[in-house]
Design a binder for these strands. Structure first.
Length: 475
DNA sequence: TTTTGAGTTGTTCGA
DNA sequence: GTCGAACAACTCAAA
């Protein structure tokens, strides 16, 4: 019987620039590509489980990946260690390789599997695939991790030699193991949610490596010029929308980093790449401070007087807060499995600082609804918003949803798209409809409390309350 | 060890 | 309507 080289696909659902796959499919090797839906190792903590949008994305991405490799991908579900043990017992395995993952439970699991394979004298190789800089390699001079983005990025990343690894070519003339009989089929992984919510996501997204490539190219052609400023306006096309592809590795950060950006303004290129830097920073923080996934990074926030208010939380989730920009964002999320970055900050600030609801509630809803839901980005960003994360800024930032809407959605294009019951309202009344007289609103067919909600809380009062709460915990 | 400079994304106030 | 200062004085990074 021939020897097989197993490549274990995880968050690297692509054939190009895939170091482990490239190794397993290199000349003289017979590659056995596998995917394991782990139903064991992340079960203890809900925050480590995939949300519905993510599962939808994963299903379709795997389907495309399998098609792109002549249906040679073998599917399994259960405990990866056990599945790999069985493969070793049944077949002659020359090597096992994978690209590294960075969630705390993944690191723990992979370490255990690696040690098992070493004990059984199976060649095991792990590769860098989804981060430009390995978190353990970037440290301050005193050998401790950075906690502030700018020095992390400028000195730790941009100033580091050597820089990110080079791109890896797609393997040619692959020799497949062609074991049609082992494992199960994609449908048996049962990834698609039973709730039909996900069906509409097809209108907005095409998961998979091919589509990721197109999205990247379109962004470079049409969205990068003017990115630095345009990225703040949710009705403009100056955001890349690459986040879900990055999450599952259908596009690698290296492919973005080294993509041809000739002729584009340097300030836009630099700013766009710094956003990739922020992704690196989130992964870095959770690698060095894994307790961040469940606890405040800044322990002072353990005493913050969060409000448990199921009614407010429900209104926020449903986009019925009475603040049009907040509601537009929450409805964009529900409708499309995505939310524009600027609006994410607005809705997050509103939940945490005006409704005083714990950041974990927001994290959890985003985890379930976002196609790009990513433990590291989601956690680090929610903690940043709450003020409990890595953020050296000395003041308490509270977004004003009225000002933000006026500034970044001046003609109301974005709001009107997702809050159609306000579509007829002129922009001068749109951002704070409760300040407009009922008579005028009636002319546009709007009655607050009936056709559109009254504001859940007063911005001024809830802001003052939050500032006082912040005052209490800082001492 | 001490000191100095600086920190993604903001808001409000008053001139 | 626009602009600069105040907010309130915290941490981190690095010399």
């Amino acid at each position: 019987m021939s020897d097989f080289s197993i490549h274990w696909f995880r968050k690297d659902l692509r054939l190009e620039d895939n170091p482990s796959f490239h190794f397993a499919a290199s000349e003289g090797r017979i590659v056995l590509p596998i995917y394991i839906h782990d139903t064991v190792n992340n079960q203890d903590n809900p925050e480590f489980q995939e949300g519905e949008a993510t599962r939808w994305w994963l299903h379709h991405s795997l389907k495309e990946l399998n098609q792109n490799m002549d249906h040679q991908l073998r599917f399994f579900y259960g405990n990866p260690l056990q599945i790999i043990q069985e493969l070793i017992e049944q077949y002659s395995i020359q090597s096992i390789s994978w690209n590294r993952c960075y969630e705390p439970w993944e690191i723990e699991r992979d370490t255990e599997i690696k040690s098992y394979l070493n004990q059984h004298n199976i060649e095991v190789k792990t590769f860098n695939s989804s981060l430009l800089f390995e978190p353990w390699e970037v440290l301050k001079e005193d050998q401790t991790p950075y906690k502030v983005f700018t020095p992390f990025y400028k000195k730790g990343c941009l100033g580091r030699h050597p820089g990110p690894r080079q791109l890896v070519a797609k393997p040619k003339a692959i020799q497949w193991a062609n074991l049609q009989s082992i494992g199960t089929n994609l449908e048996s992984l049962d990834l698609l949610p039973s709730h039909p919510w996900h069906e509409k996501l097809h209108h907005y997204w095409t998961p998979g490596e091919k589509s990721g490539k197109i999205i990247l190219q379109e962004f470079l052609n049409e969205g990068l010029d003017g990115y630095k400023d345009g990225r703040n306006f949710p009705s403009l096309k100056n955001v890349s929308r690459l986040s879900p592809y990055l999450h599952f590795g259908e596009v690698s950060p290296h492919q973005i980093w080294f993509a041809d950006k000739t002729g584009k303004p340097q300030r836009d290129i630099d700013h766009f790449l710094s956003e990739i830097g922020w992704r690196e920073f989130s992964y870095y923080l959770i690698f060095h401070f894994p307790s961040m996934c469940t606890e405040n990074l800044n322990g002072k926030f353990d005493n913050f007087p969060w409000d448990e208010n199921p009614e407010f939380l429900k209104a926020w989730k449903e986009g019925k807060t009475g603040y049009p920009i907040v509601d537009a964002g929450m409805r964009e999320l529900w409708e499309t499995g995505y939310m524009h970055n600027r609006v994410r900050m607005i809705v997050a600030s509103f939940l945490v600082k005006n409704l005083l609801i714990h950041w974990k509630e927001g994290l959890d809803w985003f985890r379930d609804c976002l196609c790009d839901a990513d433990l590291q980005n989601n956690t680090a960003s929610w903690q940043w918003t709450a003020g409990s994360g890595a953020d050296a800024a000395p003041y308490f930032r509270i977004f004003n949803p009225i000002l933000q809407a006026r500034k970044f959605d001046p003609d109301g294009t974005y709001i009107k798209r997702f809050v159609p019951e306000l579509a007829s309202l002129p922009a001068e009344f749109l951002f704070a409809p409760w300040e407009t007289s009922p008579v005028i609103l009636e002319e546009y067919g709007i009655e607050l409390g009936k056709t559109y909600p009254k504001p859940l809380v007063s911005i001024e009062e809830s802001r003052d309350y939050a500032l006082k709460a912040y005052d209490k915990i800082k001492g």
